[in-house]
Simulated assay, not measured.
Amino acid sequence: MLKVTISLEEDILQFVDQYAQGNRSAYINTLLAEHRRQILAAEMIAALKQDAEDPEYQVEIAAWDSVAGDGINARE
């Protein structure tokens, strides 16, 4: 884990202290990890929507779907 120095506005620091239960670092890490998870989820949803709206991608997926169900077992 790395140590960094950040500047917070006084009212933000008071808010952190109110909810941090004595461990500012853990609280801020938890908040940022959740925020990162939400951003990554939103980015994934946007990418999936973009794929769903891309006709070339849909043609390629359809071609792969027809191959995937051809009955060939790669383990044999």
Score class of each variant (00 low, 15 high):
residue 34 E to S: 10
residue 54 D to C: 05
residue 16 V to P: 05
residue 45 I to M: 08
residue 10 E to P: 04
residue 19 Y to L: 03
residue 64 W to P: 00
residue 51 D to A: 09
residue 71 G to M: 00
residue 1 M to E: 13
residue 75 R to I: 05
residue 5 T to H: 06
residue 74 A to P: 08
residue 16 V to Q: 04
residue 64 W to N: 05
residue 39 I to F: 08
residue 48 L to I: 06
residue 76 E to V: 06
residue 53 E to C: 02
residue 72 I to D: 07
residue 16 V to K: 03
residue 43 E to L: 07
residue 49 K to Q: 10
residue 24 R to W: 01
residue 44 M to I: 05
residue 44 M to Q: 11
residue 35 H to A: 14
residue 47 A to R: 09
residue 11 D to N: 15
residue 10 E to K: 12
residue 68 A to G: 07
residue 47 A to E: 08
residue 68 A to V: 02
residue 74 A to G: 01
residue 72 I to L: 08
residue 20 A to F: 03
residue 60 E to H: 08
residue 43 E to C: 02
residue 2 L to A: 13
residue 71 G to F: 00
residue 70 D to L: 01
residue 10 E to R: 11
residue 66 S to E: 15
residue 33 A to V: 01
residue 57 Y to H: 10
residue 17 D to C: 03
residue 53 E to Y: 08
residue 74 A to F: 05
residue 59 V to S: 06
residue 66 S to F: 09
residue 55 P to G: 01
residue 51 D to M: 07
residue 32 L to S: 04
residue 26 A to Q: 14
residue 54 D to H: 07
residue 3 K to W: 10
residue 56 E to R: 02
residue 66 S to T: 14
residue 21 Q to N: 11
residue 45 I to K: 10
residue 54 D to I: 03
residue 42 A to Q: 08
residue 31 L to P: 10
residue 42 A to F: 01
residue 22 G to P: 05
residue 70 D to T: 04
residue 17 D to G: 05
residue 43 E to D: 13
residue 27 Y to E: 05
residue 44 M to R: 12
residue 41 A to C: 04
residue 5 T to I: 15
residue 31 L to M: 13
residue 52 A to L: 06
residue 46 A to S: 12
residue 62 A to D: 05
residue 64 W to A: 13
residue 30 T to R: 15
residue 22 G to W: 02
residue 26 A to Y: 11
residue 36 R to T: 10
residue 59 V to E: 10
residue 31 L to W: 06
residue 8 L to P: 01
residue 58 Q to D: 02
residue 47 A to P: 00
residue 44 M to C: 09
residue 41 A to E: 13
residue 56 E to Q: 09
residue 32 L to C: 13
residue 60 E to A: 09
residue 74 A to E: 07
residue 49 K to D: 13
residue 76 E to G: 11
residue 31 L to T: 07
residue 75 R to E: 05
residue 38 Q to Y: 03
residue 52 A to I: 01
residue 27 Y to K: 03
residue 71 G to N: 04
residue 73 N to Y: 12
residue 59 V to W: 00
residue 76 E to T: 10
residue 13 L to H: 05
residue 10 E to L: 09
residue 36 R to K: 14
residue 59 V to P: 01
residue 28 I to A: 08
residue 69 G to L: 12
residue 15 F to Q: 15
residue 65 D to C: 02
residue 16 V to H: 08
residue 28 I to P: 00
residue 61 I to V: 15
residue 74 A to Y: 06
residue 33 A to N: 10
residue 67 V to H: 09
residue 45 I to F: 06
residue 59 V to N: 07
residue 69 G to T: 14
residue 4 V to Q: 09
residue 1 M to Y: 07
residue 33 A to F: 03
residue 62 A to E: 09
residue 64 W to G: 02
residue 66 S to M: 12
residue 53 E to V: 02
residue 5 T to F: 08
residue 65 D to E: 12
residue 75 R to S: 04
residue 50 Q to T: 10
residue 69 G to H: 10
residue 70 D to M: 04
residue 25 S to A: 15
residue 11 D to T: 11
residue 67 V to G: 01
residue 46 A to L: 05
residue 53 E to L: 15
residue 2 L to C: 04
residue 3 K to T: 11
residue 21 Q to V: 10
residue 26 A to D: 13
residue 42 A to D: 02
residue 66 S to A: 15
residue 58 Q to F: 05
residue 45 I to T: 11
residue 4 V to H: 11
residue 9 E to Q: 10
residue 53 E to F: 05
residue 38 Q to V: 00
residue 41 A to W: 07
residue 46 A to D: 06
residue 31 L to K: 15
residue 1 M to Q: 13
residue 12 I to W: 03
residue 57 Y to F: 11
residue 38 Q to E: 14
residue 29 N to Q: 14
residue 65 D to T: 04
residue 5 T to L: 12
